[in-house]
Amino acid sequence: MDMACDGRGRALRRCRAAAASVLTAALGAAVALTLSGGCGRREGTADARPVVGVSLLNVANEFIVTIEQAMRARAEELGVRLIVVDGQRSPERQVQQVETFIAQKVGAIILNPCEVEASSPAVEKARAAGVPLVNVNSETQAAPTAFVGSRDEEAARLGMTYIARRLGGTGGVLMMEGYLGQAAQLKRSAGAREVLAQHPGLKLLAAQSAEWDRAKAVTLMENWLQAYGASVRAVFAQNDEMALGALLAVERAGRKNDIVVVGVDAIGDALQAVRDGRLDATVFQDGRGQGRGAVETALRLIRKEPVARETYIPFQLVTRENAETFGRN
């Protein structure tokens, strides 16, 4: 069949190709329509509800999903229509998404920025178009209309202070950092180093990125245990995924009794590990509070009501003593 080079074969093949492309296009359109629940209809009947466009960092991240669910629930309560899109960790995509929101004439935009600098153009475009924009969870270089989130330095200070207390102020500490250059990594590193500076007895043996990733954290911790051996007394991981990875390596090496492991975020798995007495501590970041706060602020901006330029949702240290009081974040 592949050898058929005569006119009939070619025509047949061209016909088949055309049919395939039509079919693909139709299939694509059908899937898009099904998933969106029929966008044409909605635009036709002029929904009176205020519309807020939301661009999220990455919906493959458990913590971001928590924020998203809280936003959807709060929007439902307040009668706000949300258009939620996934930035998939790409600042460039976020800029495009904000441009689309502006073209759709949304009342306000909630941005969960991928990066401090690179997501800034998105903020500037919204400002130029006169659409109020709320940054949630992380910051951008460009100033948004309002910010709802938490101070990442505070989370790291809480975690590292707990380590200092557990070690009695002396011992070797390792720090696992997030993606280098992200706002959360920079601030959590800064907060942790502040505490280390106050405790000269605490020695930072090494600080490396495990890119927020559990599997990478297992590998890094295995290697660190080889390199630093008995001098390791504590690990501060800048998120729970990495803390859980480090914990697995520590447990497999039989060192859990003499190494303190602390994470940040209080994701479900980490809370469970704290309750089980495996993870020493995590720091609760109130994703639910941030999501609800962002929607509330966006609605006030649409209604031209006064808002606080910066709303900080506090962190809380979670240990075995108080773990029961925290639900699934």
Binding site: N58, A60, N61, R214, A215, V218, L244
Partner: peptide, 13 residues
Amino acid sequence: VLAARITTGQPNA
């Protein structure tokens, strides 16, 4: 094997 190593199935792994 990865799921066993990190004791979870991670959609973003």
